[in-house]
Design a protein around this nucleic acid. Sequence first.
DNA 1: AACGCGGGGCC
DNA 2: GGCCCAGCGTT
Length: 358
Amino acid sequence: MKETVFTKNLLLWNKKSNTRLMPWKGEKDAYKIWLSEIILQQTRVEQGWAYYEKFINAFPTVHHLAKAPEQQVFKMWEGLGYYNRCKNLIETAKIISEKYDGKFPDSYEEIRNLKGIGPYTAAAISSFAYNLPYAVVDGNVERVLARYFGDTTPVDTTIGKKFYTALATKLLDKEQAGTYNQAIMDFGAVICKPKNPLCEICVHQKNCTAFQTNNVGNLPVKKKAIQKKIRWFYYFIIEVNGATYIHQRKQNDIWQNLYEFVLYETSEPLYQQEIIESTFFKNLFGKQKINVKKVSPVYKQQLTHQTINGQFINVSINKNISFLKDYKLVINKEINQYAFPRFITAHLQQTHTEQQLF
DNA sequence: AACGCGGGGCC
DNA sequence: GGCCCAGCGTT
């Protein structure tokens, strides 16, 4: 196939002007490539960078990762978000370590069938590790192609995925798939950025439909985001003899597999008095004598489609609450071995800092 | 086909 | 406050 102008100019830019450096760039170890790709799913390079190095240091091979206690892996993932990635990471590590004897599969289909690996990640690993001719289609690629070809197909639809995958496959330099894929993503991140793209120095300027028609700011097209939810989380930090109740979130909801305290969730804010008079509170403590030691300020954590307002109520009691079945009673010194959502970690650190002051 | 899943940086 | 990020699994 004759190389397109787009591909030629992209590779020329890559060779002459692409100075972007990242720890995993040029990596040939499929395990390390895989790890970097999982970390980077829906995650900015700057945010994932330190996590990648931390993981590689702790787990130099897939066997190290497969053998690690799940709790430790989640603790290392803490704060990175999309925690299902971590669960799938662990599962896939075990399969590669045991079923594949530590050797990462080297066909697109086998790679694609692993948990946590979709079309993008399979193409990335296939091309970077084995130079197989699969085109990556991520946010960068969609944006670059939508602008260059002036296409208004919404990228966040099945039709859009299919369209951009076909287009990207056509443009791919199949002789150097890894280099090409890295180049187009670097180009999207460095030049054809979402905001303030560097059109003035862009090698595609003459051929870019969006630039020529003054539509760079209008592309790519996305369908409207869904409405945001607001939730109130009231956490009881219940202490009994120097230990605290925690519980792993297992329900189909945010923060799956992370830990939390005893949660009373409402859809509307409550006054302290309303909390104390609530059925939840009465069922929890019954008639037993409790000591409300402290009530925190309201924390706010902004997720993509939800706002979480959280407040902590420190309570000490003398007797165990027998019906807290799915809870662990963890001695306070060991609390920090568990992975928590971001604002809980922040609160625990805040509390810890205050205690240092006195 | 639509929806839910985090946290952070930038405008 | 909104948008977007080296997407994926579930329903």
